[in-house]
């Protein structure tokens, strides 16, 4: 598969979304709403759930399934209140010593007037800063599209894994081509250059693991994909659970500190 094929697979409307994984890989999900400051952002779903009998906080960017739901959820592009809800839930997890599992699937943070008025930049920055120091284990799985800072705001984690056909990039290939070549139609060419595929990101050290999609594509066998994600999270939670809080935070800091070196 070319990089562009992966971009298309990651965007495929038939690809399972975050809510599917929350329902299949976890059980007893109790959704918690709102950022306590402004609103509840439907682009981010979060709450408490069990994973193999372990109580966790799970947060996901949800694109929506039906057309009406997609519009309501802005196709998974969060507003600042979405990031602030996520941060509220992560800090709550820290308070009660629960691991945090984040599921990323977004084209990017929402670009709107209200988003700017309510400090999209500040909201993302806060998450990056707080996640780096969070005193509980954190695992992020990139399920579909990992779009820029809007994805990173849920991905400063002890473990960052990516599904085989998911992509994670500095910007959409269209945006990249538009900025660097003044020609958004060269998106396909951009995708091949950007090192946005799972294998390339693993080689760069940007992600820690690639989770294979049974049947070659999560949409062919969503149930098996959810099982694979669950198995990965369970295994890594066990590994991370053996570290002291200090070791955990130090290792996380060291990992991101070394990126790009």
């Amino acid at each position: 598969m070319s990089a562009w094929d992966r971009v298309l697979a990651a965007r495929d409307p038939k690809r399972p979304t975050a809510k599917y994984y929350i329902d299949q890989a976890f059980d007893g999900f109790f959704e918690l709403h709102g950022d306590r400051l402004f609103a509840d952002d439907p682009a981010i779903v979060g709450g408490l759930a069990w994973l193999n009998g372990v109580a966790v906080t799970v947060i996901g960017q949800e694109k929506g399934v039906t057309p009406r739901e997609k519009t309501l959820r802005r196709f998974g592009s969060p507003n600042p209140e979405g990031y602030r809800k996520a941060l509220r839930l992560m800090e709550q997890a820290e308070k009660f010593n629960r691991p945090v599992i984040n599921l990323v699937d977004t084209q990017g943070a929402y670009c709107g007037v209200g988003a700017e008025e309510r400090g999209q930049g500040r909201a993302i920055a806060d998450n990056l800063m707080r996640m780096m120091a969070l005193r509980v284990p954190t695992i992020t799985v990139i399920l579909g599209e990992g779009g820029s800072g809007g994805a990173l705001a849920l991905a400063v984690s002890d473990r960052v894994a990516i599904l085989e056909n998911a992509v994670y990039s500095i910007l959409s290939p269209e945006g990249f081509a538009s900025i660097l070549w003044k020609d958004a139609s060269r998106a396909q060419e951009a995708a091949e250059t950007m090192k946005l595929t799972a294998g390339e990101l693993k080689a760069l050290g940007v992600v820690d693991a690639v989770i294979m999609e049974p049947g070659g594509d999560a949409k062919n066998n969503p149930q098996a994909a959810a099982e694979a994600v669950k198995a990965y999270i369970a295994k890594e939670l066990e590994t991370l659970g053996k570290l002291s809080v200090e070791e955990l935070v130090q290792a996380r800091r060291a990992k991101f500190r070394a990126m790009g070196r």
Partner: peptide, 16 residues
């Protein structure tokens, strides 16, 4: 943009 994901990771590093 020209440094791709290495650039994005600088955001995490700097905020940390």
């Amino acid at each position: 943009m020209q440094e791709g994901m290495v650039s994005l990771m600088q955001m995490a590093k700097a905020s940390g």
